[in-house]
C-alpha cells in the first residue's frame, strides 16, 4: 500500500466516528417546520452549531438610550449600513448591508453598539424586522 498511502488512512477512518457536527440534526426530520416547532416547545433537541468564540462578531445590537447621534459610526462604516435618522438623532442599521466588521462598535464614544453571538440570520425577506436594528 506504499504507493497508495490513503488506503490505510481511509480504512482507519471507517472504524472511527465521523468528524461531523450534527447541526441542526443528524438527518433531515420528516418535516422541518414541525421539527423547529417541537424544538421551540422543548420537545426535540437541536444540536447546537460549533461554539462561537468570546469576541465573535455577530449581529449588531444597539442601545439607543445612550446614543448622542454623533454620526461617527456612520462615518467609519465601510458598507453604508448605518443611516442617521435626522428626526430623532438616532441611527438605524440595515443588517442586510452590514459586513460585521465591528468598526462602529470600536468607534462609538458611548459604547452603545455591541456585537452579539447571533449569526443564524437566513431570511426570505432581506428587509424583515429582524434585520433592521434601530
Amino acid at each position: 500500500m506504499s504507493s497508495l498511502p490513503m488506503i490505510p488512512e481511509l480504512l482507519r477512518q471507517l472504524m472511527r466516528k465521523p468528524a461531523t457536527n450534527l447541526f441542526p440534526a443528524k438527518y433531515l426530520p420528516p418535516s422541518v417546520t414541525e421539527f423547529l416547532h417541537s424544538v421551540a416547545s422543548g420537545k426535540a433537541h437541536l444540536t447546537p452549531p460549533v461554539k462561537t468564540p468570546p469576541k465573535f462578531r455577530g449581529k449588531i445590537e444597539y442601545q439607543k438610550d445612550g446614543c448622542i447621534g454623533c454620526g461617527l459610526c456612520v462615518k467609519v462604516c465601510p458598507s453604508h449600513a448605518i443611516e442617521l435618522l435626522p428626526e430623532t438623532k438616532r441611527i438605524r442599521i440595515w443588517v442586510d448591508q452590514c459586513i460585521f466588521c465591528s468598526q462602529c462598535t470600536d468607534m462609538c464614544p458611548k459604547g452603545g453598539l455591541r456585537m452579539t453571538d447571533e449569526f443564524l440570520l437566513a431570511t426570505e425577506d432581506r428587509y424583515e424586522e429582524n434585520l433592521i436594528v434601530e
Binding site: L10, L11, Q13, P18, A19, T20, L22, K26, Y27
Partner: peptide, 13 residues
C-alpha cells in the same frame, strides 16, 4: 454511505 464514513463524514441516509 461507506465513502462518506471513510472521509469522516456522516453521509446521506
Amino acid at each position: 454511505k461507506l465513502a462518506a464514513h471513510m472521509q469522516a463524514r456522516v453521509g446521506p441516509p
